[in-house]
Every structure is written in structure tokens, then in C-alpha cells.
């Protein structure tokens, strides 16, 4: 469960103070699929960065799994990002001089898994997004859709409970965009919480819950979206084996730190 309580994010821009987030309170249950929609500059990216522990709120509290995030140290936050959160960015954010395979393997190295287990997990993730044949390619030599699928593979290879997508379809044509969305729905169907940032209403409307944000404030919280999305066979199977909801597990912070 994610919970923001009266969160502010302020930036100093010259003499002016910008309210990127202005008293935002929001709570997202485990296993929800939430889209956060708003025009550019509305604060939705800032919101995502705070939810993903990449950034901290100026005021207010963010509870992750019931624990206030500001109580964590920098390395604890790194561990939380590694264990619980997967990011999918609009610009893919793959490292150009590494192959797709190496990009996907990277979070597992930081987790300290042995090589054999890493290989196994990377193979699964590659197969899941259909990039096994392309694993030796560098990001620059594959299409945008394939890059985004690699980024999703990197996000899901750690088996996170929360996946944050920042305009994941923004740089893609509508057909590949749809494929990416389907992947995200599959992941949600496995019980993972999905938070999707977008400026595109048509994409936001596909989500069961839609939060509209404007000038740093939440102006709409609409739970009237499609209750359930059609599940792919893979997702169906995953639900049967994993269970419908994956509880957020607070990582065993001591000892696991690198």
C-alpha cells in the first residue's frame, strides 16, 4: 500500500517558488492499476518520482508499506528501489553501451544474486517480452518498441510489487503502444501494483482508476474505469500460481544492504 499524506514539492526558480506538488494526498492499494493523468507541467512526473523513492517530498509524508519513506537512509532507499519497484520510462533509459541482456541483468547484480540465477531470471524476462533473439543487441540497434519491452523486462526481472510507468507509450506508435499496455495489464493481473503516468486521456481511461492532476493538485479521482481488463493466458496462469495479490513486503533491510 502506498500512501501520500499532504505532500508538497517545492522548487526555487529564481525568486519564484514553484509548487510542483501542492498538498497531495493519495492512497493506492496493493494490486491496483492507477493512471495519473495531466498535462505537462502538472506535477505528475514529480509525483511518480516520489512514489518511486527517486525523490523526496519537501513537506508531508509518504508511507510505503506503512513505513514513512523519510525514515530510510539513502542505501535503504536504493534497496527498496531494487527489491520492490520497477521503472518504465518514456525515454526507455537503457544504457547504450550495454546489450539488452546486460541492461536487464543490471538490477540483479546490484541485488547480489549469483550468476547462474541471474542468467535464469534474465532468460525468463527476455522470453516474457519476446526479446530472446535480440538479447545480444545494443539498444540503439533495435526499434523503440523493442527498447521499451527491454525496459519492461528490466523492471520485472526483479519481481517488483510496484511498477511505475512514466509515459511508457509516449515515444511509440499506437500499435506498439498497445502491446506495451497489454504487458502492463498482464503484470497487474499477476497482482502487481501499476501506476501509469500519462498525458493521454485515451490511455488513462483504460485503467480501472484514474487520478487527474493539475497544477500540482489532484482534481479528480475516478474509479469508474473498466473493472477488470481481459487477461492474457500468461497472466491467468500467474494468478493461479502466485495468488491475486502480492503483499508489499518490507525488505529485510539489515544484512541485505550492499
Amino acid at each position: 500500500m502506498l500512501e501520500l499524506v499532504e505532500v508538497y514539492k517545492l522548487y526555487q526558480l529564481g525568486d519564484e517558488v514553484i509548487h510542483a506538488l501542492d498538498n497531495v494526498s493519495l492512497s493506492i492499494d496493493d494490486g491496483e492499476f492507477v493512471s495519473i493523468v495531466g498535462p505537462s507541467g502538472s506535477g505528475k512526473s514529480t509525483l511518480m518520482h516520489i512514489l518511486g523513492c527517486l525523490d523526496t517530498a519537501t513537506y508531508g509524508t509518504y508511507y510505503l508499506g506503512g513505513q514513512p519513506v523519510q525514515s530510510y537512509s539513502r542505501s535503504e532507499l536504493a534497496l527498496i528501489r531494487n527489491l520492490q519497484i520497477g521503472f518504465v520510462f518514456q525515454s526507455f533509459n537503457l544504457i547504450g553501451r550495454m546489450t539488452l541482456e546486460e541492461n536487464i541483468e543490471m538490477p540483479l547484480i546490484y541485488r547480489g544474486l549469483p550468476a547462474s540465477e541471474r542468467r535464469e531470471r534474465v532468460e525468463q524476462a527476455l522470453n516474457r517480452v519476446g526479446l530472446w533473439e535480440r538479447r545480444k543487441h545494443t539498444p540503439n540497434s533495435v526499434s523503440g518498441g523493442q527498447q521499451q519491452r527491454a525496459a519492461i523486462a528490466r523492471a520485472l526481472v526483479t519481481e517488483p510489487t510496484l511498477i511505475l510507468g512514466d509515459e511508457p507509450t509516449g515515444n511509440l506508435d499506437s500499435k506498439t503502444g498497445t502491446q506495451i499496455m497489454e504487458l502492463l495489464y498482464d503484470l497487474n493481473a499477476e497482482g502487481r501494483t501499476i501506476v501509469l503516468i500519462t498525458h493521454d486521456d485515451s490511455i488513462a481511461r483504460q485503467a480501472p482508476r484514474r487520478v487527474r492532476i493539475m497544477d500540482g493538485r489532484i482534481i479528480e479521482d475516478d474509479r469508474s474505469g473498466p473493472g477488470k481488463v481481459a487477461l492474457s493466458p500468461v497472466a491467468q496462469e500467474a494468478i493461479e500460481t502466485v495468488g491475486a495479490t502480492l503483499p508489499l513486503v518490507r525488505p529485510a533491510l539489515t544484512g541485505a544492504l550492499i
Binding site: 539513502r74 542505501s75 536504493a78 528501489r81 533509459n93 546490484y110 550492499i258
Partner: peptide
């Protein structure tokens, strides 16, 4: 810098 950001976002600690 961007690479450092990516690495940190997937869980690299400062020490790493």
C-alpha cells in the same frame, strides 16, 4: 550522469 541515474533507479547504492 544519466547512466548513474539509471543505475541508481534500479537499486545501485552510493557505495556501488
Amino acid at each position: 550522469t544519466r547512466e548513474i541515474g539509471i543505475r541508481k533507479s534500479v537499486g545501485a547504492t552510493d557505495r556501488f
